[in-house]
Simulated scan of single mutants.
Amino acid sequence: MNIEERAERPCVAVSVEAPLREWGRVNALVPEVFAWLAERGIAPAGPLFYRYRVAGDMDAPFVVEVGVPVAEPAEGDDRVLAGTIPAGRYATLTHHGHPDGLYGSITRLQREAADQGLEWAMEGEVLAGCFEFYLTDPEVEPDMDRWSIELAYLIR
């Protein structure tokens, strides 16, 4: 685990509520976000991310945003949210391998943070900055066992 200070970054995202058993609905938002950007001539300014607002499980829904950083603030619409990746101190850890193995890396990050007395930033009952950044472009590396995914959690 590393601790990093990060600046605020503009982004766009689509929000969805889905339990793990319906995760295909979450993944289906990826091409929608990139199509929305392309229609507006906006280039991504960083890797695809999943931002978790509320953690769920197989039956209880997660509240998650599927998004992309952009260079300049954009104007959203009735489907796509324009927002920011918040500034602050983040606990980070990079997962190498298939996304199905993320649970082990998330557990490790949470354990190491707890061992150091760190707590995640919250906005009421909602996580303020809990991100998975997909560092590997699936068009360049289609083998998910070779992917790298950065976990970045905003610290209170």
Rank of each mutant, 00 (worst) to 15 (best):
P61V: 00
A45Y: 05
E75H: 13
A43W: 13
V54L: 08
V63N: 09
Y50I: 08
F49V: 06
F62Q: 04
E65M: 01
F49M: 08
V70D: 13
V70H: 12
Y52L: 06
E65P: 05
D78T: 00
A60M: 11
R53I: 10
G67H: 08
D78I: 05
P73Y: 07
A55H: 13
F49D: 14
D77N: 14
P44K: 09
V70C: 06
D57H: 12
Y50C: 00
V64I: 14
G76D: 08
A43I: 08
D77C: 08
A55I: 14
D77S: 11
D57C: 00
G76V: 04
G67R: 05
V54W: 10
A74G: 10
V70K: 06
P69L: 02
E75F: 05
V66N: 02
V66L: 04
R53H: 08
F49Y: 15
P69E: 09
E75A: 13
A74D: 12
P44M: 08
M58L: 15
D77K: 02
A71S: 14
E65N: 12
V70Y: 09
G56R: 06
V66K: 06
L48I: 14
G67Q: 10
A74M: 05
G56Y: 13
M58Q: 09
P73R: 02
G56H: 13
F62V: 03
Y52A: 07
R79T: 13
P69H: 03
V63A: 08
D59A: 07
D57W: 00
R53M: 10
P73G: 09
D78H: 04
V68H: 00
A45R: 02
P44N: 07
G46W: 15
P69F: 03
D59C: 03
R53F: 01
Y52E: 09
G46V: 08
E75K: 07
E65T: 04
D77M: 02
D57T: 08
R79E: 04
D78L: 03
V63R: 14
F62G: 01
D77G: 03
V54F: 13
E75L: 12
A74T: 11
P61K: 06
P69N: 02
G67L: 03
R51Y: 14
E65F: 11
V70R: 06
R51V: 03
G46A: 05
D57E: 04
P47L: 11
D57K: 10
F62D: 12
E72Q: 00
A74L: 02
G46H: 08
R79S: 04
P61Y: 09
A60P: 05
V63E: 06
V64G: 05
V66R: 02
P69A: 00
D78G: 07
D78S: 02
E75P: 11
D57G: 00
A55K: 11
V63G: 04
A71C: 04
A45T: 01
E75D: 12
G76M: 09
Y50W: 13
V64P: 09
M58D: 15
A45W: 14
P69K: 02
